[in-house]
């Protein structure tokens, strides 16, 4: 997405809000751009920065070829600051740096733009320090905060920003694109649930690790439906050796989430929504018999809780063990 017209095509509402406020010179001092992965948060932030700085724009479209545009793209523009999480979170030192920049005059132009990626990863300490600047914005500074989950940010921050909601992408469109790229239909349905990025989708599809992960997930489902007592042993013998890293574990939980959701869909006769199974799979029939709707809801809650715990640095083995025990109960 390189131009506003591209953005408006995908995100009509958000694109329009931004272009209109630029046209009328009514930029807010802080925006909180919220949207799922791949919905174009960064593209939107990048374009906004370009539009503010570009001296040769036609209407609202930045030229993309002048020095300012080029340097924003390469991260070398002295008045555009990108803050990216350093490891698991955005640390206080990063905000200290930003705070200092707030008090200095701009280097080249008369305005400054700050883009905070994954703003939900601000530590509480860092978030509170940023608050002050959202309360008393300096002259000509624009803050753009990008997040997948605005609810996990401090409400005090949310209330001081203009919210821009990006609508989720249409999964069927993306599925169709994947199928056009030569993926088989089942993989396309599954992978389109995991990512919105076409290159990432392709690497996932070609990844042997991911293929094994899918097999393991089927086995987990089989065991949890037919012989739940064995699940705990399965976790130790098969599951843990395969999902070693935290992000791999997260993927694994995503797969489980989709699988249990499928069974719930089967209960509700919504066969169109199936992602992991097809309607005539044996396993899904077994699942419907083994789990009640209520039990399924509880399981889904447990998986989400497990995902949260993983993010909070709880020991992986403990998280999965607990999940297995909760499902077996």
């Amino acid at each position: 997405m390189k131009t506003w017209s591209d953005i408006v095509a995908v995100q009509p509402l958000a694109g329009k809000i931004m272009t209109n406020s630029i046209k009328r010179g009514r930029m807010s001092h802080a925006y909180l751009i919220q949207g799922a992965r791949g919905t174009g948060k960064e593209a939107l932030a990048f374009l906004t920065a370009c539009t503010l700085f570009c001296a040769h724009k036609s209407g609202v479209e930045p030229c993309g070829t002048c020095l300012d545009c080029k340097r924003i793209a390469s991260g070398n523009h002295p008045d555009v600051h990108w803050i990216v999480p350093d490891g698991q979170s955005i640390k206080r030192e990063q905000i200290d740096h930003l705070q200092k920049e707030f008090t200095y005059s701009a280097l080249e132009s008369t305005q400054k733009v700050y883009i905070i990626k994954e703003a939900d990863k601000l530590t509480n300490n860092a978030a509170n320090r940023i608050l002050k600047f959202l309360e008393e914005p300096g002259s000509h500074t624009t803050a753009l905060m990008l997040t997948e989950n605005s609810q996990s940010m401090l409400s005090t921050i949310r209330s001081r920003c203009q919210m821009i909601d990006l609508k989720p992408l249409d999964p069927t469109l993306f599925q169709q694109r994947l199928i056009d790229e030569g993926m088989d239909e089942r993989s396309a349905t599954l992978i389109s649930e995991m990512t919105n990025n076409i290159t990432e989708a392709k690497t996932l599809n070609d990844d042997v690790w991911f293929a094994d992960a899918r097999k393991l997930m089927i086995q987990w489902m089989d065991i949890s439906c037919t012989q739940p007592k064995e699940l705990y042993v399965f976790v130790h013998n098969r599951w843990m050796p395969h999902f070693k890293e935290r992000h791999q574990q997260d993927r694994g939980l995503d797969l489980l989430l989709l699988a249990y959701r499928d069974i719930l869909y089967a209960h509700l006769d919504k066969m169109g929504g199936l992602t992991v199974f097809t309607s005539n799979d044996d396993l899904i029939q077994k699942g419907v018999l083994a789990f009640s709707q209520q039990k399924l809801l509880a399981v889904l809650q447990h998986i989400l809780a497990a995902k949260r715990q993983l993010q909070q640095n709880v020991h992986q083995t403990l998280v999965i063990e607990q999940l297995a025990l909760q499902i077996q109960r």
Partner: peptide, 10 residues
Amino acid sequence: LSFLSRLLEG
């Protein structure tokens, strides 16, 4: 030699 410094705003 030229020495340039940014200014403080406020």
